[in-house]
Design a protein around this nucleic acid. Structure first.
Ligand SMILES: [Mn+2]
Ligand SMILES: [Mn+2]
Ligand SMILES: [Mn+2]
Ligand SMILES: [Mn+2]
Lengths: 220, 220
DNA sequence: GAATTTATTTTGACTACTCAAAATAGCGGG
DNA sequence: CCCGCTATTTTGAGTAGTCAAAATAAATTC
């Protein structure tokens, strides 16, 4: 069985691969895992020896099919656990990522299946993140964001790709939850500012970076 | 934070202390944790250096107050998780010990409190094992067993102190569950055999060792 | 009261992970 | 084409936990 460390390396590699097409740079992994770059080099070489990743020295890493399969299993556990924590235990969506970070390594497949059934086989977690299927299908669509969607058109929020508790608390405070409606009224590239209008709400200013973490689809 | 390894050492020490008054022999810990005796000696010395146990060389170990406090926390997690797995996820009571063995190290206090509330603050787990309170009170009473209770008198089963899946499946098959009624009709010390009578059931023969793992109280 | 058996401890070695700091490769600008 | 910056790799070292096997202490047995 893969260790907790290996599971974390693989899962973060999968997550980083979504934003980085091709090879994930060692530095990105190092930052995501909060270990020094030298450690990543060492570990990646050992993962490569086990056939879980391929390492192009000086360029980056990517998952093999076997590594991806394992990573998807961990990600599925993570997101189902988050969903459970919010829907059954009524925890706040800003707290569940940290909890799931631990639990994803302690849950057996048997428990996972029961959890999945209890929750009615959800397809997304509380942040709108897609939950990989039991067979390892990851239904990840390409969405616009509040930083890129057309101006003035009504959109529905589908996903918040930012785990930090502070951001999620701020988002909820202003009604920026998956499923909510909104409209981008102004976008000032020079100032790096996006103005968002919620139905029955005051106009809200967001940084371009923050806006880019909120995925949307056209509504109505 | 204590490592998974340390938590397991402390928890098993607490469990073994219930049966062994005074010092727990190194060999008992070694067997419980499935590591060689030399490893236990090494680890126990390091636990002692951290003030979690006291080690009387060549005699045994016991928990300090600090060690006991930590151990009770782990045990509380273990037993609440078992209860959750049976009552909410409908898992079989013979499977939950193995699951809880992992989960007890991954659950935060915040999650534990929610779980506890969801379950209605249970006082015992599916095996009848007492659940330590949040303050670390362990309500452990001394009970008779099917190996020691008076003959012919009706008793109610209160606890099965045996974790192995095979035993628990066997027990359930014959209706030997916490809360069930029974009567010991015969006890043959020479043969090491106990005969148990269940209401509306055939007489059942148990080894003295097995009978000793089923705790009972007088009923009616 | 030796001699033997059994439990425990010691010793030496190994795996998995990690960091600090020095070495190196591969740019991108001049 | 070379210089310097940045990302990556290498080297050396440390921690936590483990085992195998030899050494030792404490009971038991005779
Ligand atoms: Mn994790
Ligand atoms: Mn999520
Ligand atoms: Mn455990
Ligand atoms: Mn139990």
């Amino acid at each position: 069985m893969p260790s907790v460390t290996v599971e974390n390396y693989l899962k973060h590699l999968l997550l980083l691969a979504e934003e980085t097409d091709g090879l994930v740079p060692m530095g990105a992994l190092s930052a995501a895992l909060a270990v020094v770059p030298g450690t990543v080099t060492t570990m990646v070489k050992s993962l490569a020896a086990d056939g879980l990743v391929v390492h192009r020295p000086r360029q980056g890493v990517k998952l093999t099919a076997a590594g991806r399969r394992l990573a998807l299993g961990v990600l599925r556990k993570h997101r189902l656990v988050e969903t459970f924590l919010v829907q059954v235990l009524k925890m706040h969506w800003s707290a569940v990522n940290a909890e799931a970070e631990q639990l994803e390594h302690a849950i057996s497949d048997a428990v996972l299946d029961r959890l999945d059934a209890l929750l009615g086989h959800p397809s997304t977690d509380p942040h709108g993140d897609p939950i990989p299927s039991r067979l390892g299908k990851l239904h990840s669509q390409v969405y616009a964001t509040l930083a890129t969607c057309p101006l003035a058109r009504p959109v529905r929020l589908v996903r918040i790709t930012e785990q930090s508790a502070e951001f999620l608390q701020f988002a909820e405070l202003h009604g920026l939850l998956p499923g909510a409606s909104a409209r981008v009224t102004d976008r000032n590239l020079a100032a790096g500012l996006v103005t968002v209008q919620r139905p029955r709400g005051r106009p809200l200013a967001l940084s371009l970076a923050a806006a880019g973490r909120i995925l949307v689809e056209p509504s109505r």
